[in-house]
Design a protein around this nucleic acid. Structure first.
Lengths: 193, 193
DNA sequence: GGTGCCATGTAACGCGTTACATGATTAT
DNA sequence: ATAATCATGTAACGCGTTACATGGCACC
């Protein structure tokens, strides 16, 4: 959902071809370690945007080197882009995979909840350590994007760790909560028994 | 990536059919407002798991009502599940859509950065308000899962708001950062001009 | 007889990924 | 010559979504 709009935005700045779009995108987000967009995604996105009428093929340059298909944004594309600018972006979905794992471990009896929490905490600490290290080595004058993204990641990691502590404190409540295991009620009298 | 493992875990507890899996999943995560898994995903996931040899069709019950295809986990499935339990779950990727939007707004000149920040902040505040409201109305004895997930969401929202403030403080740095707009260097002498 | 739940799917699409393939130019 | 970079794609898959379709049974 985001690469689509980024492509529109870059084409709003000026018409470009696929390879150039990819380079510009990577430059904007501060390198491929922050957000690596694969060429295939750029080209398929361009195709879809063209089919939807949001961009149009402007021209094909063949003055030197390989051919370049140059795309430009359309009016419909600008409209879509402005809508993107006008509305807020919802923070990533509430789907929490760790919580799911914890619950699955509980009901299946195949994993020890305390162990799961320990493992996750160790993982997050390691992650936090790595990011803090990267953060301290980043150059504020050239890698501003990277630094900001690292700061965000660190803040979220700290939140996750605090949350893990909360969960650990409530583990007993979670364990003894009435898990509605629905008795899969097949209605009707059994047939042919 | 998570539903797959959840299905394995639920089948590790006992063999089940698709409809039952969906109900059990929804019960675990505390209702569809937390994580709504569509029937289609359950069935396609089951098909893929079966093709991969992680689950197998156990039997088809037809004692009463509609037929039920009952699946059971295999040894390979248990192995995969234990691997899931053994390793940590990485916090959602660093892809930040708002930061991307800000940068796109800057280079395209199609949006005012301050405005973008204001919009996003307003959106996050609204979200925070809604979640806090929900949190205060939740019943701790029955909706523990929902409460924990709400707490996590609130903590992350607060982190996002603090991060927004950071970005606002650095806006000038971001604006005046050397944006490497690569002069798209077509090599070779122009042909046929 | 209608509504609604139980239970099963298929089809098509969007987004993202990996892997593969082609070909031209430039620098060594 | 060959390796790197420029530039374009296709094919197939995984995950998730919406929409559509079918049919039995229960309850009123």
């Amino acid at each position: 959902m985001s690469v689509r709009h980024a492509v529109l935005g870059l084409l709003a700045q000026r018409p470009r071809h696929g390879y150039e779009l990819r380079a510009a995108f990577q430059a904007l987000v501060g390198g491929e370690e922050n957000w690596d967009v694969k060429p295939a995604q750029i080209y398929t996105t361009l195709t879809r945007l063209e089919q939807g009428g949001f961009v149009a093929e402007d021209s094909v340059e063949q003055d030197a080197g390989p051919e370049k298909r140059i795309y430009a944004i359309t009016l419909a594309g600008r409209k879509t882009l402005n809508e993107w600018f006008a509305c807020g972006i919802e923070p990533e979905h509430q789907h929490d995979e760790f919580f799911l794992k914890l619950m699955i471990g509980l009901v299946s009896g195949a994993a020890d909840p305390c162990r799961l929490i320990q493992t996750q905490r160790a993982y997050l600490f390691q992650e936090l350590h790595d990011l803090t290290e990267q953060r301290s080595q980043a150059d504020p004058s050239r890698e501003l994007a990277k630094i900001l993204l690292l700061d965000k990641a660190v803040m979220h990691l700290e939140a996750d760790l605090r949350w893990l502590d909360m969960i650990e404190g409530r583990l007993d409540d979670i364990k003894h909560q009435p898990l509605p295991e629905p008795e899969s009620k097949p209605r009707g009298r059994p047939r042919k028994i």
